[in-house]
Computed example of a mutant assay.
Amino acid sequence: MTYPTLFDGLRLGDLDLPNRVVMAPLTRNRALPVGDVPHVPNAEYYAQRASAGLIITEASQISPEGKGYAWTPGIYSDAQVAGWKQVTDAVHAKQGRIFVQLWHVGRISHTSLQPNEQAPVAPSELAAEAHTFDGQALVPTSTPRALDLFEMARIVDDYRKAAINAKNAGFDGIELHAANGYLLDQFLRDGSNKRTDAYGGSVENRSRILVEVLEALTEIWPAGRIGIRLSPFSSAGGISDSDPMATFSHVIKSVDKFGLAYLHLVEGETGGTRELPKGADIATLRALFKGTYMANNGYNRGLAAKAVGSGEVDLVAFGRPFIANPDLVERLAQNANLNEVDPATLYGGGATGYTDYPVQNASVLA
């Protein structure tokens, strides 16, 4: 059997992608400080990278309560929708395709980032083993309060409203962020979810809110324009689970029933090693999802080409290489050298380390 290459097109739901190189969601902390509004530099940044088969935006909070870091964009206010419309217009002008990642951080926040300096929310009143950036320094995340049972409908509705806003902002689709130790992941894991009601205990209960959110999103968008991101073996934010294979086997089976555009898996530790704990098996989990599979974590050109060429994966999401190489697709196709990321300019700041990385061929970004 002949499999495609990394540079062959793909039909994703009802969307045609020109290649299988995806720009992964990358937090850059460059929204306007007042209102967390995307603005012109964000539009320039994403438009520079429009040759990706698909762009997935940086995670964008669905509500003020969903915020966990300074200067990250939201998708809940009219000003934010207008800001994102600048971004989608700029990407579409370059014939690009762009999904927004919907985000609620849960307990990965600090009271200074929350409305009225309230405690962050989570499944249970358990502090994360994590730090966040409050606009001045890295600070330990605050102890959350446990969400009341009656608040679950509000959380689901916040996702629904964000999905509507994503349509109004001109996005081609949405990705549900259920990974990396944030709110939905906190519900899925028995290390962070100690509830005894309908949203805790069994894996069916722990995944209930995820299913309810997907039900809400598919009321707004066709399933073929919705993706989901999971990180079964990541310990980001101090997240843990006693049996991740059992938990995420159930979760992926539940997700598969929706007929989503893709499953986006972080293969290993978030932004870290690809080594898996004993008993972990990505291939077993991947086989439970019948749709398009997007792989992520530490992929270089050779590993990505091999994975796509063997039929193991359909799409590969690249993170840091896209930060430093706006023309990453072209460089990969030519097997050219890549620019190196400047760690000092990853988060916050202006154009330096954001929109000023050089390209090999100036006409690429013209």
Rank of each mutant, 00 (worst) to 15 (best):
H250Y: 15
P222Q: 02
G238P: 08
P232E: 00
G191W: 02
A216V: 12
R206L: 12
L217P: 01
P244Y: 02
I220M: 04
S249W: 01
H250K: 05
L184P: 02
G181I: 06
L230S: 01
A223Q: 00
A216D: 14
R225H: 14
L214H: 00
R206A: 05
L183I: 13
Y199W: 11
D190M: 03
I209Q: 06
L183W: 11
M245Y: 01
G237Y: 09
F187N: 06
Y182G: 08
A246T: 09
S192Y: 06
I228A: 09
I209V: 13
F248D: 11
R225I: 02
S235C: 09
I209C: 04
R206C: 08
I220G: 02
D243G: 00
N205T: 09
L230N: 03
M245T: 00
V211I: 15
G237C: 12
D243C: 07
I239Y: 12
I220A: 03
K253F: 03
A246V: 03
S235G: 08
I252C: 00
S234M: 07
I226R: 00
F187S: 10
G238D: 11
S234Y: 07
I226M: 02
L217Y: 00
S242L: 04
V203L: 14
L184W: 08
E212Q: 15
V203A: 14
Q186Y: 06
G191I: 03
K253T: 15
T196V: 13
S242N: 09
A198D: 15
N193R: 11
G238A: 07
R229L: 07
A223L: 01
G201K: 06
P222A: 06
K253A: 11
V213R: 09
S240Y: 10
V203E: 15
G201F: 09
K253R: 15
